[in-house]
């Protein structure tokens, strides 16, 4: 299944909040929707979910307009909430039935997902008796009750402790492995890098960057080298002296025991490594420094909104 958002625009009153948004996500892949607060991520998601109507553009599934009643969608909204005074099991079955499951199936899936979330003991408990993190796990169970083909998670990691975040991470990985299309928005770039093959960065209602993460990173100049060594104190002045004409900067990162060398031209990488080795320095490793997703995010969203 392939979901596509094509040329979506949306205004609230005089304010245009989305301007020609294009996204796509295939089965077994995850798309990270990134953007600062108020950039338009949730509005885009709500349009996909049919909560808001777009002014123009379309949402397609396998090339046809989305029919939300005939595909299984799991949606974790940014605004979390279930019935606080209802028993967890009862309300999960209710939501399962609203999503089109038969009562028995809804009950079976409720038990299965509560077990997967480590929350089986809370089946008969009221939601309000749970901690915020545990309530979020119940919310995730409600999202996944119908074994969705399309999973949309809006800020799924906010409010989770590291252990629960790990659990959620595993669940999302399983969903991707099972062939679900996953769209998720987050500010936590490490999670995005971990699951997502591609990203789309929204800034002020526009897509400012989209594509495969590896390709995006590869598109940046590969002229910065990090050389890991126990002899950084000796190595740094050596590189400065020997490569003065071909480097922009040479710095020592004592925490990681690395010398970071920014070359004028990427072609000089091999010569630099060879020279350092030939001069007898003890090298533990070296790598090309790629920009982090965080760097890319900041670069594309700074000054927006």
């Amino acid at each position: 299944m392939k979901i596509e958002v094509k040329n979506i625009t949306k205004s609230f009153g005089d304010k245009q909040v989305l301007n020609n948004i294009n996204l796509e996500c295939e089965s077994g892949k995850a798309l990270g929707l990134l953007g600062r607060n108020g950039a338009g991520k949730t509005t885009t998601i709500r349009i996909i979910m049919g909560v808001f109507f777009q002014d123009s553009g379309e949402v397609l599934v396998d090339g046809k307009p989305i029919d939300r009643e005939n595909i299984r969608i799991g949606y974790l909204p940014e605004e979390r909430g279930l019935y606080p005074k209802q028993k967890i099991g009862e309300q999960l079955i209710y939501f399962g039935m609203l999503k089109g499951l038969a009562k028995n199936e809804a009950k079976k899936n409720t038990i299965r997902w509560l077990e997967r979330m480590g929350m089986s003991d809370y089946y008969d408990k009221k939601l309000e008796t749970l901690s915020k993190g545990n309530q979020q796990k119940i919310q995730l169970a409600a999202t996944l009750l119908n074994d969705p083909q399309l999973v949309i998670l809006d800020e799924p990691f906010s409010g989770l402790d590291p252990v629960n975040a790990m659990l959620l991470k595993d669940v999302v990985k399983e969903l991707i492995a099972d062939g679900a299309s996953v769209i998720f928005s987050s500010h936590q770039m490490n999670y995005v890098e971990e699951f997502c093959d591609s990203i789309a960065i929204i800034n002020s209602g526009k897509i400012v960057l989209s594509g495969n993460i590896a390709e995006i990173k590869r598109s940046y100049p590969r002229n910065t080298l990090a050389v890991n060594s126990t002899e950084t104190a000796k190595m740094t002045p050596f590189i400065i002296r020997e490569f003065a004409n071909v480097t922009d900067s040479v710095e020592t990162d004592e925490k990681s025991s690395e010398v970071i060398v920014k070359l004028k031209k990427a072609e000089d990488k091999n010569r630099l490594i060879t020279t350092v080795i030939q001069n007898g320095f003890d090298i533990d490793g070296f790598r090309v420094c790629e920009p982090t997703l965080n760097d890319i995010f900041v670069e594309y969203t700074e000054g927006g909104i």
Partner: peptide, 13 residues
């Protein structure tokens, strides 16, 4: 339902 934020889940179901 609005206060407890159940609403968004409900109207998408």
């Amino acid at each position: 339902e609005k206060n407890t934020r159940t609403m968004e889940l409900l109207i998408t179901c």
